Simulated scan of single mutants.
Amino acid sequence: MNDHTFAICAYKESPYLEECIKSLKNQTIKSNILIATSTPNDYIKGIADKYAIPYYINEGEGGITQDWNFAYSCANTKYITIAHQDDIYEKEYLKIALAAIQNAKHPLIFFSDYFEVRDGKKVTANKLLKVKRIMLLPMRIKSLQSVRWVRRRILSMGSPICCPSVTFITENLPEVVFENHYRACEDWEAWEKLSKKKGEFLYSTKMLMGHRIHEESETTAAIGDNKRSKEEYEMFCKFWPKSIAGVIFKFYSKGQNSNQL
């Protein structure tokens, strides 16, 4: 419990926040839990008080990356998982994550496969999930998890890593993980930056958390105003010449439909 923290990013009045907290409380290994928000209100504070969870208010600049970095900074443990308020975690998530971390030489992040939650139902397979699992096939081989070239080749074709499934090993990472200029690809940009570092990207093929897809999610909003398309093209340009990046982007952008209801 002294080594890990679930840092929940709460925003406005999500009806799914309490379900997220319950899934963290039900972990087979107990952990620290905190709530961080840049939109303080009685609803969030009431739930924090109900479950006796420390409650932190970001009084600086708000925004998705600012909120993630603030939540990250509120946790003073070796391992941190930034939990999104709408998502849920399987009870074995932390047990499996810690076991993988403790058996690694120089881990940077741990992440797992995941399922989607749509209209309250668990969706374990669709086109997007299948493509991401295919992209991550090389990461099933433990010896390849520390090979920078392999990580970068995977990320050069898109971002198959589900952000809320990630546990950060803080002692091996920079103080600031997320850069502040993307709205939809901020996590992909972080993985690209971390992929250059020496160490391991630990991957579990078990579906250890559920990512909720709904109309008010940040992913859906970013797709709706076309910001995601611009950012994705810029990300491909970090790996490829612009002419090739444009071709890959055309195919990749079709997958955006899977994040819409």
Rank of each mutant, 00 (worst) to 15 (best):
E179Q: 08
L173R: 09
Q145F: 07
M135V: 01
K127G: 11
C185T: 14
S146L: 01
V176P: 04
S156M: 07
F168A: 09
P174E: 01
S159L: 10
R133T: 00
V176H: 03
W191C: 07
M135W: 14
F201L: 05
F201G: 03
M135A: 11
V176N: 05
E175S: 05
R183T: 09
T205V: 10
M157I: 06
T205P: 08
S143P: 00
L128H: 07
K198H: 10
W188K: 02
V131D: 11
K197C: 01
N172F: 03
K127T: 12
V147S: 02
K142E: 13
F178Y: 15
S159Y: 01
F201M: 06
S156H: 13
V177N: 04
M135H: 08
S146Y: 00
E192T: 14
S165F: 07
W191E: 07
T124Y: 09
K130T: 13
C162R: 06
V166D: 04
A125Y: 08
M135T: 00
L144C: 08
S156C: 11
S204C: 15
Y203H: 03
R133C: 02
E200A: 04
L144D: 00
S159M: 05
M135L: 09
C185I: 07
E186L: 12
T167Y: 07
S204P: 13
T170S: 08
P164M: 11
Y182R: 13
G120C: 10
I161S: 05
C163F: 15
T205L: 06
S159C: 13
H181N: 14
E189L: 10
R152H: 04
S165C: 04
N126A: 13
K132W: 09
S143L: 11
L202W: 09
C185K: 12
R153P: 03
E192A: 14
V123W: 12
S204H: 09
W191S: 02
R183C: 11
A125I: 14
L137M: 04
T167S: 14
K122I: 15
N172W: 06
L144F: 10
Y203N: 02
I141V: 12
L173A: 03
V131F: 12
L129E: 05
S165N: 04
S204G: 12
I154N: 02
S159I: 01
Y182F: 15
P160F: 11
K132E: 10
L136C: 13
E175H: 04
E200G: 06
R153S: 12
S204D: 11
E171D: 11
C162W: 03
E189F: 08
D187M: 03
I141G: 11
R148H: 00
A190S: 15
H181W: 07
S195W: 02
E179H: 12
G120F: 10
E175V: 03
I134R: 10
W149Q: 14
K196C: 13
E189H: 13
N126E: 11
